[in-house]
Design a protein around this nucleic acid. Structure first.
Lengths: 217, 217
DNA sequence: ACCTGAACACCGTTCAAGT
DNA sequence: ACCTGAACACCGTTCAAGT
């Protein structure tokens, strides 16, 4: 009775594409590869998506939809804003290679609209007028995306050993810089090279963003 | 006498690639297209760049090198940090489609190392220990990049008329949302849709970042 | 040192056609 | 409604070769 007959569906394909992106990077997400992964002709994809851009948009919308917006409370605006930003980061972090495309769906996907409305409401409570709230809300979302997707070493997915050896190499080459010219850089080298993906990196910088909003009121 | 004989050089090619990216987007930057633009065979590019990744890295490094780091003064750390962030934004803004790749060269290009050293020194003055300074410096750079490159509508380069009509369309579709559910979003619609590229958008959010650093000390 | 020519394995996409 | 087959214009890249 159920329409189980069709072997493919948009959702299955999006899931498959996400898995592909997580495992081999966004470059592996290809019309032809996605078709092959599902035992079907490349042209079959064009029934489910208008073109490749539509596929990528669907992936981004899926990610925006994964944000579990916390219920509104009577806590102070800054605590609530912090929780919302955290919820965004939590949703994006499992798919860092896809996260970079999330911004283009935040004003399109239903979940993105709700999220934006919520942030704007909190910013209004904080005392920002609509125009400034709009600019700040836009930037906050882009910043959280940058926090998750910004890892330059994340663009090529690699094994843990590969990543560790690259981190060691990069730390060493920074440590080898002339100490007279780059004292702070040398002292900070481990943090600069390995901060991405760490919990405290997210915590610290999400705090920074919320404190920043406090500061510009 | 001078080695003017060679028709091509790395720098000429990088400049050409930047122009191409500005005019037609990063998707137009292609080994084959770049060769054609210079009246030469695609394979000639492989003399000047190991592969396409090396070309893109060179473009990113060029952008990082374009940052005019302001001279250190005895002004308070937050004023100086603000000036440094501003200098980064000023350098990146003319090439928004390329800006997204800048982060991967900031710890590699010479100019990026100087820039990072400077920011770390200011953060140390602000009272952050090296580890936290490293995490904040990394995030600050990624955030400024996001501020410049984050425009979702910038990915396809278009004429001004195209951009304006798309902004009108997007504003209208946001304004048509149910007012009961999205009151703040509707009030903020113009700002949400058209804030990218505006001077006050940069000013406000660079302030936010500096204030954020103040807040987490 | 700097560039070419031919070839290969990949892309996205269109169009007509099948069931 | 959902998928196939053949074809087209594009990619990045290698390898041997030219000057």
């Amino acid at each position: 009775m159920a329409k189980q007959s069709q072997r493919l569906s948009r959702d299955v394909l999006i899931d498959c594409a996400m898995t592909l992106a997580d495992a081999e990077g966004l470059g592996a997400v290809t019309i032809r590869r996605l078709a092959q992964e599902n035992g079907v002709t490349p042209m079959a994809m064009y029934w489910h998506f208008n073109d490749k851009e539509a596929l990528l948009d669907a992936m981004a919308a899926h990610l925006v939809g994964a944000v579990k917006l916390p219920a509104a409370t009577d806590a102070p605006w800054d605590a609530q804003l912090r929780d919302v930003l955290d919820a965004i980061a939590v949703a994006l972090r499992p798919h860092p290679t896809v996260a970079g495309m999330a911004a283009r769906q935040v004003l399109i996907a239903e979940a993105g609209l709700e999220l934006t409305e919520r942030v704007l409401a909190l910013l209004a409570t904080a005392g920002l007028e609509p125009r400034r709230a709009a600019e700040v809300a836009t930037f906050l979302f882009c910043s959280v995306v940058a926090l998750v997707a910004g890892d330059p070493g994340q663009r090529e997915v690699a094994t843990d050993e590969d990543r560790e050896s690259r981190i060691r190499y990069k730390t060493a080459s920074l440590a080898a810089l002339p100490p007279a010219r780059f004292p702070h850089l040398i002292a900070a080298a481990p943090g600069l090279v390995s901060c991405f993906g760490q919990d405290d990196f997210f915590d610290l910088n999400l705090d920074l963003l919320v404190q920043g909003v406090r500061g510009i009121r």
